[in-house]
C-alpha cells in the first residue's frame, strides 16, 4: 500500500527521468533524503540515473525557487559582463513546485530573475509540510533515529521509544493557514489539485500581536529576536533575497551593524521584512532554516496582511499584475495624508 507521498515520489522520478533522457531539461531540481531524519536536501539531478535519488515527503520545507536562478545561471556558458547572450535557446531546468514556491517563481519572472521559457514546472498540490521542531518538542527533544511517514500519522522512533503522532498536529504554521496550496503556474501536474482551502482567521496570529498595545508589542518583538545569531540562514533560504550585496553586508555606508547588538539585529529583521513586502508568499523556508527557532515569519506576514488590506494584492497570483510598490491606483487609500478617511475628500 503506497502512501500518497510515495506515489508522488514514483511519479517524480518517472517525470524527471523522462525529461533528462529526452534532453528537454539539462537539470532537474527536487529533493533527496538528507543525512539525518526529518531533513530533506534540495537536489539537482543532472543525469537520468540521478532521478532515482529524488524523493517527496512532508519534510520538504526549503524553497526550491531559491535555487532556481542559480541553477539556470550555472547552465549558461560563461561570458564577459558586456558580451551579448549567445545565440540559440539556453538549457532548461525542470523544477518541482507547490503553491507558495510557484508564486515565488511568478515574482521571479516579473523581477527578471528567471525566464519562463527556460523552466519546466512540475506542480504538486501541497498537503502541508511538517515542522521538525514541533516533532522534536513532542518527544522532549530526545534524539530521533527514524521517522516513518504514513498518510495521516508519523511514527517516530528513538532510543527506547516509539511514538505515533498525528501529522496535522505538527504541520508548519504557515501551511496550516495557507489558502493557495495548488501551484499557480505549471507545465505538468503530479497528483490531484485541491482547488484551494478556506481558512477562517487566516491572519489570526498577526491579529493577536496587533491587538497588543505598543509597549507590549515592542516587548514581544525584542524577545522574539533575542536569540538571533545573525547567521543569515533565513536570508539565504529566501528566494527573494538575491541582491549581490545584501544591505547588511554593505560597508560604505554601513547601514546596519554586523554584531548581535539588539538595535542592529532589530534593524536587520525589520528592513528585511520590508524588502519582502508585497513579494513574500509565506513559504516558511526562513523559519525552517533558522537554527534558533525565531518566528520571523510573523514580521513578513504582517506586511503581507498590510498589502492585502491596503492594495488588495497577494503576490504571485497573476503574472501580469504589477507589483504594488511599483505602481499606484487612484483608489489607493490616502488616510495617512488626508484627514478624513475617504479617498479624495479633503478636510
Amino acid at each position: 500500500m503506497f502512501t500518497i507521498n510515495e506515489k508522488i515520489t514514483v511519479e517524480i522520478r518517472k517525470v524527471a527521468r523522462d525529461l533528462l533522457k529526452k534532453g528537454e531539461v539539462s537539470a532537474f531540481l527536487g529533493y533527496t533524503k538528507g543525512t539525518v531524519p526529518m531533513v530533506m536536501k534540495p537536489f539537482v539531478a543532472r543525469r537520468q540515473e540521478d532521478a532515482e535519488r529524488l524523493s517527496w515527503n512532508s519534510f520538504c520545507v526549503l524553497n526550491l525557487a531559491n535555487y532556481l536562478p542559480l541553477v539556470l545561471k550555472s547552465l549558461e556558458p560563461p561570458r564577459r559582463p558586456n558580451e551579448p547572450p549567445p545565440e540559440g535557446p539556453l538549457p532548461k531546468v525542470g523544477v518541482l513546485v507547490t503553491g507558495c514556491w510557484s508564486r515565488n517563481m511568478v515574482v521571479q519572472i516579473k523581477e527578471n530573475q528567471i525566464e519562463r521559457e527556460r523552466v519546466k514546472i512540475i506542480g504538486i498540490s501541497s498537503r502541508g509540510m511538517v515542522d521538525r521542531k514541533k516533532v522534536q518538542a513532542l518527544v522532549d527533544n530526545n534524539e530521533i533515529t527514524e521517522v516513518i511517514e504514513e498518510d495521516h500519522k508519523l511514527i517516530v522512533k528513538g532510543h527506547g521509544f516509539t511514538r505515533e503522532i498525528n501529522r496535522w498536529d505538527v504541520v508548519r504554521d504557515n501551511c496550516k493557514s495557507c489558502v493557495h496550496p495548488d501551484p499557480v503556474i505549471y507545465d505538468e501536474v503530479i497528483g490531484d489539485l485541491s482547488g484551494g482551502r478556506q481558512v477562517p482567521k487566516r491572519f489570526g496570529d498577526i491579529q493577536e500581536i496587533e491587538d497588543m498595545d505598543i509597549e507590549e508589542r515592542w516587548q514581544w518583538f525584542q524577545e522574539e529576536i533575542l536569540s538571533c545569531i545573525r547567521c543569515y540562514a533565513c536570508r539565504n533560504a529566501c528566494p527573494l533575497c538575491y541582491c549581490p550585496t545584501c544591505f547588511v553586508d554593505d560597508s560604505r555606508p554601513q547601514w546596519v551593524g554586523k554584531s548581535i547588538d539588539k538595535t542592529d539585529t532589530a534593524l536587520f529583521h525589520i528592513l528585511r521584512a520590508f524588502h519582502c513586502a508585497g513579494r513574500c508568499t509565506d513559504c516558511g523556508a526562513c523559519e525552517s532554516a533558522c537554527p534558533m527557532g525565531i518566528r520571523m515569519r510573523l514580521f513578513t506576514k504582517k506586511l503581507y496582511k498590510d498589502c492585502m488590506e491596503l492594495y488588495g494584492f497577494e503576490p504571485g497570483l497573476k503574472i501580469d499584475e504589477p507589483l504594488p510598490l511599483t505602481t499606484f491606483k487612484l483608489e489607493d487609500p490616502q488616510d495617512y495624508i488626508l484627514q478624513q478617511g475617504q479617498k479624495g475628500e479633503e478636510k
Partner: peptide, 23 residues
C-alpha cells in the same frame, strides 16, 4: 555590480529614463 536587474527602477521612473540593457 549591485544591480540585480529586477527592473523596479524602470517601473517607477516617470520619464522612462531607466531601462534594462539587453546584453
Amino acid at each position: 555590480m549591485k544591480c540585480t536587474g529586477c527592473a523596479l527602477c524602470t517601473l517607477v521612473c516617470p520619464y522612462h529614463a531607466v531601462g534594462i540593457d539587453e546584453n
